[in-house]
Write a protein that binds this DNA or RNA. Structure first.
Lengths: 237, 237
DNA sequence: GCACACCGAAACATCCGAGGTCTCTGGAGG
DNA sequence: CCTCCAGAGACCTCGGATGTTTCGGTGTGC
């Protein structure tokens, strides 16, 4: 195993064992390199890798620190990973979101405080009557994020955040190509809000399911148009 | 932004744009470094970081390749991230698993083929009458993994795999400390298997819910013994 | 006494070049 | 046809030198 990978494990162990706590500063490069028995170059590779997944935070001119290691921070790194997936797997991601989003919405209906519910309502009102696609999408993301936060589970919230990435593109297409989508989205958001405000978890769950399933169904039909109007390239057999 | 981070984005873009396809080999270090306008040292840091999240695969003496980029591979990297979380957040992870596992089990009851169902049954029978904790745990992991695969959704499967990590320790404790846990686990596994074999998604979902919730409830009581059995974390005030 | 600008130390960022080690490949020999 | 073995190619590791940024102390002027 390359020395760099060993260094990654060593640093990881130092954190997990508690020798390095969140927020702690690491020894300077030269010092840590000598202690781990490798060169600064190789150590820098290890540090850079741990930086990418938000475990370490390097500040030039200052030092290298352990991040807070909070779930939202670490799972944010998953967004980077998810970006690599293209349209062929977006349905799989959406399917997972369809499982998590209703559950999160139901939890939000139970756990959300009145203040947060009020803010959620404000989000709905902020949207202009004829919003641009960009404004609608931004509002949509904030709306769902607020609900995810309201679930009270940071892991669930971060996971949903990451999953929103790949489906965002799909929603853009939808807004652009499907006429009634904008109005329908607003109606469903309002319904979800009402259910949460009334503290009705099952109703909230159902509306969320309907909401996500709508996107999923549309996307499924769009990605497999072969059944609708064949005749393009299907000359075989 | 440091040149290394720029390089990471450049390589990422090369992959996303399709210039580099899964399995493709990258230009040699010196060549790519010159092309991206940085030194080999800095480029190596970028490559190492992308290696950690399984986007690139470097083989000494051969070259650097783009991995298959399959969801299971990329989400496997999340296991590394999850390792950093300790017991204080394990309940949050378990709560997410409690959402996903029943859904996956229900999907498996619909989608699993007869061959896979047979293999699932074999897994149950393989376990000795008085298994060691290690054997039980290994069998448990394989059992749930098989079901996750049976859902037909690789993203869901990988996600559950990653979530199993943090809860594994908890299950070890449970097996060690709670007398009836072993027998109960076997009974519930059998029930889940029967429901899947009968292609009854709702029954399968319910058994899976019961199964995971059992661990969750036990863990919640163990971690917060002070409240006795209030059953909720609502420490409102 | 307080606020601001300056300056030096500390730490990371980047680069370069030199050996070392591993893997793949192709040819010689059996 | 199979096996063995050099050679080339590519990554691995190292050490040092130089540039950049940040932090904190210091001194000045108000």
């Amino acid at each position: 195993m390359p020395v760099t990978d060993v260094a990654i494990d060593k640093i990881k162990d130092m954190i997990i064992s508690g020798e390095l706590a969140p927020g702690d500063r690491l020894p300077k490069e030269a010092e840590l390199a000598q202690r781990l028995g490798l060169s600064r170059s190789s150590l820098r590779e290890a540090v850079k890798a741990l930086c990418l997944i938000r475990v370490l935070d390097v500040r030039q001119g200052d030092g290298t620190y352990v991040t807070s290691l909070e779930p939202n921070l670490l799972l944010d790194a998953m967004t980077f990973v998810v970006d690599f997936h293209r349209d062929d797997t977006v349905l799989d991601f959406l399917a997972v979101r369809r499982i998590l989003e209703p559950a999160a919405t139901a939890l939000a209906a139970v756990h959300m405080g009145e203040d947060d519910i009020t803010e959620l309502g404000i989000l709905l009102d902020e949207l202009a009557d004829a919003p641009t696609i960009e404004a609608l999408l931004a509002n949509d993301l904030r709306f769902h994020r607020k609900i995810a936060e309201g679930s009270g589970n940071p892991v669930l919230c971060s996971l949903l955040d990451s999953l929103s990435g790949p489906t965002t593109r799909a929603r853009i297409w939808r807004g652009l190509t499907q006429e009634g989508a904008v109005a329908r989205t607003r109606e469903q958001h309002a319904a979800i809000y009402e259910a949460i405000a009334a503290h009705e978890p099952e109703l909230a769950r159902s509306w969320a399911t309907v909401h996500v399933a709508g996107v999923e169904q549309w996307l499924r039909n769009t990605l497999t148009p072969s059944v609708a109007d064949a005749g393009s390239d299907a000359a075989a057999s």
